[in-house]
């Protein structure tokens, strides 16, 4: 698979990363290098290998369904840029 400059810009936009024309060119080269590696790996026959969803061969630990947290919003909101009546304030967003 070949990656285009537009792909790089689109991915940057989706990830909300501002990227200059020069950086985009450089990123394209880096990502294309990674894609080449992936292409080489794809030559390996993995037909009988179970896909892995995690690098650790371990199982998820579960917790009991109990409430353990108390109200700390005053502490948390002390580092928020703007708050009002207990709400975090952000620039207006309407879809």
């Amino acid at each position: 698979m070949t990656l285009s400059l537009d792909d790089v810009k689109r991915i940057a936009n989706l990830a909300r990363i501002e990227i200059s024309e020069g950086d985009a060119q450089q990123t394209l080269a880096h990502l294309s290098g990674i894609f080449n590696l992936i292409e080489q790996m794809q030559a390996v026959d993995t037909e009988s290998v179970e896909p892995m969803s995690h690098s650790q061969d371990m199982v998820q630990r579960l917790r009991e369904d109990v409430v353990t947290e108390s109200d700390q919003h005053v502490l948390f909101q002390s580092i928020a840029p703007q708050v009002e009546a207990g709400f975090y304030l952000v620039p207006k967003v309407i879809e």
């Binding site: 917790r63 369904d65 109990v66 409430v67 353990t68 947290e69 109200d71 919003h73 948390f76 909101q77 009546a85 207990g86 709400f87 975090y88």
Partner: peptide, 19 residues
């Protein structure tokens, strides 16, 4: 009683951000 990934309460109608 608690959230899916944390121990905060999910009781309805609590004060904003208190849970």
């Amino acid at each position: 009683r608690s959230k899916i990934f944390s121990g905060a309460s999910i009781a309805y109608g609590a004060r904003p951000n208190s849970q």
